[in-house]
Write a protein that binds this DNA or RNA. Structure first.
Lengths: 211, 211
DNA sequence: TAGATTGTTAATCGATTAACAATC
DNA sequence: TAGATTGTTAATCGATTAACAATC
């Protein structure tokens, strides 16, 4: 519940939407036309009441006695998540992680387009990965003035993260997807998602020793 | 709250521990000897009561009137998470994601050792990334018999995920870190962490449009 | 001792689940 | 109409926060 959040929807609900979306995409691909909350509950290991309640946060997508229309529900969730349009992305930091994200295939088909990556390492500048060039970080300001960049992915060493986040904010980017192992907190009008892969790995270690 | 979980600690608490650990590691590096829950609260944007309560789930690490000893608390959390020992890791699927995970630098210094990767693509088999060989998937059974493998990372296309998870379970691996966009559910004595990068990206899209 | 800060109980808040009336 | 399944309210459960006594 960020300070600026204007919707009354809890983050827990929002974080389940992509899972519904993934599931409905699969169902659609398998040719299924309808689905009930009971079936979703079974397949997704979630309580059926919770699913109906989640969906009803955004309106009545179902039909009593029938269930939900797979395609319509999927499209509705796409709209709620705002993944029904294209986003322009840049990547800051073109080390292992940054270059992996340049190649990341899950963007494909969805509306995420990596325009360029930026780094300060002369050995990387000018090279191309997955058809996308690595530019000198000093060019970022001009680049952002000339392109409508929506999302900045941070994949720098952690020492640089705060400066990069400030820079992206200044350049008017709307969202930060941060892969460095430091938390970036929400600022001004910039949305932030922190991905801490190591944290998940540590939780896995805990789990495997506490089954 | 998995069925088999024998500790009474909630998952919400466990998921905050890596954050504490990261923070304490930084403090230690900066030469700080002690820290109070009030300072942690400010730096981590968490409620101080919550922090004290979290830590007290595992014993009294603090001292009234003083606070917490940084190094001792960090070591205690390492023990709780069981990240105070080495884990042997294999990666199944050596595509973009798999190879990126072979190079992933955050293992370094921590006790995670990638022994090998496995794939079925002849073009990849026999090649080496970051000093680690990509082997034919048919060799995995023999490999696991000869090595004590703790963690299996799944980075295959989603069609293969269920079979791979079953295989890893059969081979006696203790934990699965799944990067494919399908959920693997906890099974037998195998701990599972699903990483769905795209889900986070979708949530980011939601957030940036609902600030 | 006085001040600081933990450990822990009690109060609050929010999220999940159950139940059922509405309705297709 | 009867059966099915949603939408929604009420009940439960768990997590967070506040408060303060314990104690270093």
């Amino acid at each position: 519940m960020s300070v600026e959040s204007n919707s009354g929807i809890s983050e827990a609900v929002i974080r389940r939407l992509p899972k519904y979306h993934r599931y409905l995409t699969d169902l659609e691909l398998m040719g299924e036309k309808k689905v009930s909350s009971a079936k979703m509950s079974e397949d997704l290991c979630l309580n059926a009441s919770q699913i109906r309640r989640d969906l009803n946060c955004f309106g009545g997508f179902g039909q009593q006695g029938y269930g939900y229309n797979v395609s319509k529900l999927k499209d509705a969730i796409s709209k709620i998540l705002h993944i029904d349009r294209q986003y322009n992305v840049i990547i800051i930091g073109a080390g292992n992680m940054g270059r992996a994200l340049m190649r990341y295939p899950y963007y494909k088909g969805m509306g995420f387009k990596v325009l360029a990556a930026f780094d300060s390492n002369p050995a990387l500048i000018g090279t191309t990965t997955s058809g996308c060039e690595i530019l000198d970080i000093s060019k970022i300001e001009k680049f952002c003035a000339e392109h409508e960049v929506d999302i900045g992915i941070i994949a720098t060493p952690k020492e640089a993260v705060l400066d990069v986040a400030d820079l992206l904010t200044k350049l008017g980017i709307h969202a930060i997807w941060n892969f460095a192992p430091v938390d970036v907190y929400e600022r001004d009008g910039v949305a932030v998602e922190n991905v801490h892969l190591n944290d998940g790995l540590y939780v896995l270690c805990y789990k495997m020793n506490n089954l």
